[in-house]
């Protein structure tokens, strides 16, 4: 069995969560394949700008932990999207953790990083990690596909529970006969079964 992965999220939904979050100083992580860190960060800035009406600050603290702390302090009240921590050493993460009190701020911080750096952050910076424990996601095609299938199965189960006398086959047959009931749940049921083409035959 594979080890449990981080919860997957579509980048657009992630941006929506960031923009909608009312908490001052919240920190979150978006873990992506290493070669997607920079483009994801840039896309995220655009998405958040569209939603919030102003662009977050994109920082790239390649100078290490001290540089990261300085950048966070410099833009204390703005939303920050940080990318470029993947080269951080153990000392950098420990430095960041030691300076945690200086990372308390008004604006939100999103760190986009690769899997190895995320594992290091969670291992080497336990104080900072405790801020993001509930707010770490991954965004890669495979994880998103698996999440999409999981949500689909979950919703189908809900629909089957909603109309326990009906099976998937019953719903398809009724649609083919043009006798599908008018409730929107049946249309959704068909779409989830991959038979949205039958909706016109109602």
């Amino acid at each position: 069995m594979e080890l449990p992965a981080l919860p997957p999220v579509d980048p657009a939904e992630f941006a929506l969560r960031v923009a909608a979050r009312p908490d001052p100083g919240a920190w979150s992580l978006l873990v992506v394949p290493i070669d997607e860190v920079a483009p994801t960060a840039i896309d995220l800035v655009r998405e958040i700008e569209t939603l919030e009406g102003h662009a977050p600050v994109l920082v790239s603290p390649r100078g290490g932990g001290a540089r990261f702390v300085a950048e966070v302090e410099r833009y204390a009240s703005e939303t920050i999207v940080a990318a470029g921590v993947d080269g951080f050493t153990r000392d950098d993460w420990e430095e960041l953790d030691l300076a945690r009190s200086r990372l308390l701020r008004e604006g939100e911080v999103v760190v986009v990083l690769g899997p190895d750096a995320a594992a290091e952050l969670l291992r080497r910076a336990p104080h900072l990690a405790s801020w993001v424990s509930s707010f770490a996601w991954t965004s890669n095609a495979e994880a998103l596909r698996a999440e999409h299938e999981r949500r689909k199965a979950e919703r189908l189960a809900d629909l089957r529970a909603w109309a326990p006398s009906m099976t998937d086959d019953d719903v398809v047959r009724l649609a083919e006969q043009g006798r599908i009931p008018g409730e929107p749940e049946y249309a959704e049921w068909l779409v989830l079964l991959g038979r949205g083409d039958l909706l016109g035959s109602r």
């Binding site: 080890l3 449990p4 992965a5 981080l6 919860p7 873990v31 995320a118 594992a119 290091e120 969670l122 291992r123 993001v132 424990s133 509930s134 770490a136 996601w137």
Partner: peptide, 19 residues
Amino acid sequence: AAVDAFGRTMFFGLRKPEI
């Protein structure tokens, strides 16, 4: 959903001896 997400983050990066 929150418990699941939290647990997955805590699991992330764990090595076999730790597990």
